[in-house]
Amino acid sequence: EHRLIKDDMADQPSVTQQFTQGILQSAQRAGIALPDSLLARLPGDGRTPLALQDEVWEAYCHASQDPLVGIRLGLSLHVGHLDLVGMLLMSCETLGEALDMLVEYHPIVGEGGDFSLEFHGTRCHLVYSPHYTRCRRERVEAVMACVLNLARWVSGGTFEGCHVQFVSEPSAAPETYQSLLAVDVLFGRQNDALCFSESLQATPLIQANAAMRDHLLRLADAILAGLDSASLSAQVQQLLRQHPRWGKERVAEQLGLSGRHLVRKLQDEGTSFRLLRASVLQHLSEQCLRDGGTIAQTAERLGFSDESAFVKAFKRWSGTTPAQFRVAMSDP
């Protein structure tokens, strides 16, 4: 029975144990006692299922009563909390190479979101797109604070971001964010991103080691292959990215499952087809709008019955209309 439980956990989207330990250590430093019943369910080795990580975050945020708990946690994380990926990023030769590695191998740290690189003139945006909804603001703030801190650390303190931007509104005075992060912070933007000059990609890293990087890459490829085959949620999202018009039954058929079986297995992973589809469609629609697609073209591409239905869905996902999103996107 114990083996079956572990096998079930292996099939769920997950987070490396080191990242979970970072949260627990931060709670301990802050004098926060998380429920024993929750701690007892955390795996002693391997990875933490994303659904269980959701509970850890909720318990931590509720107990801390600190609106900036995510920022403080992110700044307290170090390379070791990022598992193999932290060492891989450290061994890269330039910041640009490290960013490419982060985009490719971040699921090893956690499968709760995706990174992508976007270029806007002379600026580069490292965009983070979370898949979770529970404690979204705190978790995104933790991720962005951690990435900013890591960029400064691996570059020997020479990295200077233009700004950090968040989709959410501030939970405390904006100047407090800027004081903690030591960079300009913008709120209510179209995505969560770390923004900096494209020229900084050539920044040499202080612990570059090509031989170590190549060795770690082989290990990372093996781990990533195992994660890709394990997560049903990841497979569903990949199919939806390729075929945004597909519904639950068509996706289930492609995966060799019945619609009902797909629903049950996704529930076991702590998610649902509706949430996964909404996440994928939001990402695709935002990308289409950024690439210059009209609202009508975007609605057609994603399979909406008409433009009005798409506008309502987009506002439900992001809290803003496609037209407002395009205006915000054009802001500097």
Rank of each mutant, 00 (worst) to 15 (best):
H2I: 11
M9C: 08
P13R: 11
S14T: 15
I32V: 12
L34G: 04
P35T: 03
V56S: 09
E58L: 13
H62Y: 07
Q65A: 15
V69G: 09
L73V: 14
L75E: 04
D83E: 15
G86P: 03
M87G: 05
L89N: 11
A98L: 05
Y105I: 08
H106I: 10
P107C: 14
V109H: 00
G110Y: 02
E111G: 09
L117Q: 10
T122Q: 08
Y132H: 10
E138M: 08
E141L: 04
M144D: 03
C146E: 11
V154Q: 05
C162E: 09
H163L: 09
P170K: 00
Q178I: 10
S179V: 06
L181H: 11
V183G: 02
V185P: 04
L200A: 08
Q201T: 07
I206P: 00
M212H: 06
L217W: 01
A220T: 08
A222G: 13
S233H: 05
H243Q: 10
R245E: 01
W246V: 01
S258A: 06
R264C: 07
G270N: 14
L275H: 14
R290P: 00
T294M: 03
A296I: 04
S308K: 09
F310H: 09
V311Q: 08
F314V: 10
R316V: 06
T320W: 02
A323M: 08
